[in-house]
């Protein structure tokens, strides 16, 4: 294929790349830049009123108790779900990777929650968590305490209830990634270790876990980003309540930007989220690089 050169690319290369480039510019780069610009304005969607106000939105955000609560809740959600999801995923991956009867069945069953619509899962869990729901009945049967008003109506249990649902839903997906990583570990290593008299615990510690490290860090980054973006669960189950106990950053952005139409304020909150995710992902990527060297 011949064509005029533009830098390192020929025009035909650019033409071939254009569908992706146009999509990138229109639907990724432009919204990111636009949202950055908007965060320095008091843009009102309906009236079209728009004036530059500098960093006022950012100052207001840090003195807004709802936003501060949203940041804290998002951090609690991320820190509270990440270890459980990863530990359960690794344990299940090791379990289903063994030569057990019905291995494929178990893999499918554990993966199943990941393919169900999040809205559907959230609605089902709302019913389970309700006053008189199955979880209350179960706890009552074994004599454990539960919030009588229902898990999603108690300030202390609403966020943990959503976190538990998220762990249940995400574990299967990450389990599958860990299964892929486990299957790439050469069997010879285990055979050699067995010949040397290494037990199951030693084989896990000396072979399995070190080989899982790259995948572990990949899952860590992926799950962190996903946890920071939690929205659908809150939208369907609690709308940020009660008493803002489930208010998260993305839900806050939605309420401000798309419900009250304070686009500038919402954009500022979205940019703080972007910075938070970028910072944490960068730290985690650094960790990945260090481990790979």
């Amino acid at each position: 294929m011949r064509g005029v050169s533009v830098g390192r690319f020929r025009s035909s290369d650019l033409l071939m790349l254009s569908p992706w480039l146009v999509t990138l510019l229109l639907f990724w780069l432009f919204p990111i830049i636009a949202s950055l610009v908007l965060s320095f304005t008091d843009y009102q969607l309906l009236s079209g009123h728009n004036s530059f106000i500098g960093v006022d939105n950012f100052i207001a955000l840090f003195s807004d108790p709802t936003f501060v609560r949203a940041v804290l809740n998002t951090l609690v959600f991320t820190v509270g779900t990440l270890p459980f999801t990863i530990i359960f995923a690794i344990v299940l991956a090791i379990f289903v990777n063994r030569n057990l009867p019905f291995k494929t069945f178990f893999q499918s069953v554990y993966f199943f929650p990941s393919i169900v619509s999040l809205v559907v899962v959230a609605l089902i869990y709302s019913t389970l968590y309700a006053r008189g729901g199955y979880i209350q009945m179960l706890l009552s049967a074994v004599g454990l305490a539960y919030p009588p008003e229902g898990f999603l109506f108690s300030e202390n249990t609403a966020l943990p209830a959503i976190m538990a649902m998220d762990v249940w839903m995400s574990t299967g997906y990450y389990m599958l990634l860990f299964v892929a990583a486990l299957q790439s570990i050469p069997q010879e290593l285990y055979d050699a270790a067995s010949l040397e008299g290494a037990g199951a615990w030693h084989r896990l510690k000396a072979i399995t876990l070190p080989h899982l490290k790259p995948m572990l860090l990949f899952v860590l980054v992926l799950n962190t980003i996903k946890s920071f973006q939690i929205f659908v669960e809150v939208f369907v189950m609690t709308k940020g309540g009660p008493l803002n106990s489930t208010m998260t950053i993305v839900y806050f952005v939605y309420e401000e930007g798309l419900h009250k139409f304070n686009i500038g304020y919402g954009a500022a909150a979205a940019n703080i989220l972007f910075l938070l995710i970028a910072l944490i992902a960068w730290v985690e990527m650094k960790l990945v690089q260090e481990r790979q060297i």
Binding site: G132, L152, F153, T238, K239, G240, G241, P242
Partner: peptide
């Protein structure tokens, strides 16, 4: 225990 006097709304925007 499972009978209630009045049904009131809360935590629902």
């Amino acid at each position: 225990e499972d009978v209630f006097g009045f049904g009131s709304n809360s935590a629902e925007r």
